[in-house]
């Protein structure tokens, strides 16, 4: 029967020998990976040119499940690792795939500096509003009043509005979607591949096990329904106005799409200007094995 010949189109992008994955039922991380794989299919990008770098966390485990050159680094340091990878081999398309805590708390300094330098990285930030891997503690993204294991009476700290942060720091492409917006997310990832420079895609994603449950917000499916109901697509929305609350509206869309020379172009231009003929392109000699 023909039905037996077909396989899931994302299969070639996954380490199927490592399935099933560790993520909980109703966790949104797998959905984001699904969209990522579909963006790869659609963009027809050469898979050999891709490298994916993760930090530590539930989202950090993405690196272990994609069939790409993949690096599961240390907590918060995916971006600087990716920076070294990209600078040593500029031909690589380097994706950073990590959690909100990893990228904006312990790794927050690297996030803003990579955006400032405009390093050509595609950052996919799965924002489940919490530190999930360690059991549901407060993150810099946790909305006000939310209960977490380290804010048992509710979070009082103001949260980071990530699109606003990375736009201010210099990112050339900034979008936000939820795991409900699968087609839009896949399209955004595809668009980021077309950009040269620091691109940042935030994906709001359920963590039913630790965030939703503790805040009596239901399970993964309830959260997806909330995303469907309360999301408003506003392309080009001023990022200062897209902050999140626990149960309010979620502004999604492509917020920033601009051009600015990326780090390697700037470096090249500076060296050519200052050194002229005596400048030797790094890519000509960098490989250490011949």
């Amino acid at each position: 029967m023909t039905i037996l010949d077909v396989t899931n189109p994302v299969e070639p992008f996954l380490r199927t020998d490592r399935m099933p994955h560790i993520w909980c039922p109703g966790c949104g991380i797998g959905t984001t990976v699904n969209c990522f794989a579909r963006a790869l299919i659609e963009s027809k990008i050469d898979l050999q040119s891709l490298a994916l770098v993760s930090g530590i966390g539930c989202t950090g485990r993405v690196a272990g499940y994609v069939k790409l050159d993949s690096f599961h680094t240390t907590h918060g340091r995916a971006i600087p690792f990716a920076t070294g990878l990209k600078l040593a081999n500029p031909k690589l398309n380097v994706i950073v795939y990590s959690g909100d805590g990893d990228l904006s708390a312990i790794g927050g300094n690297h996030l803003i500096h990579a955006a400032r330098r405009n390093i050509d990285l595609k950052v996919i930030c799965v924002n489940n509003l919490i530190y999930a891997m360690t059991g549901g503690q407060t993150a810099p993204t946790t909305p006000g009043h939310a209960i977490t294991s380290t804010s048992p009476y509710g979070t009082c700290e103001p949260a980071f509005n990530l699109p606003h942060l990375v736009e201010a720091a210099g990112a050339v492409y900034v979008a936000r979607w939820t795991t409900f917006h699968v087609k839009q997310l896949a399209r955004s990832i595809g668009e980021a591949f077309q950009k040269k420079g620091f691109s940042f895609i935030e994906v709001i994603s359920p963590c039913p096990t630790l965030y939703q449950r503790r805040n009596k917000l239901g399970d993964g499916l309830d959260t997806m329904k909330y995303y469907k109901e309360k999301s408003k697509v506003k392309h080009g929305a001023p990022t200062s106005e897209v902050g999140l609350t626990m149960t309010g509206e979620i502004i999604v869309g492509k917020f920033v799409d601009r051009d600015r020379p990326d780090y390697q172009s700037l470096l090249h231009a500076q060296m050519v200007e200052s050194l002229g003929e005596s400048y030797v392109e790094p890519s000509e000699t960098v490989c250490s094995c011949s």
């Binding site: 340091r77 070294g84 600078l87 040593a88």
Partner: peptide, 9 residues
């Protein structure tokens, strides 16, 4: 860690 990214590159 940047240097280690470069090594793998």
């Amino acid at each position: 860690i940047t240097l280690q990214g470069a090594v793998w590159g």
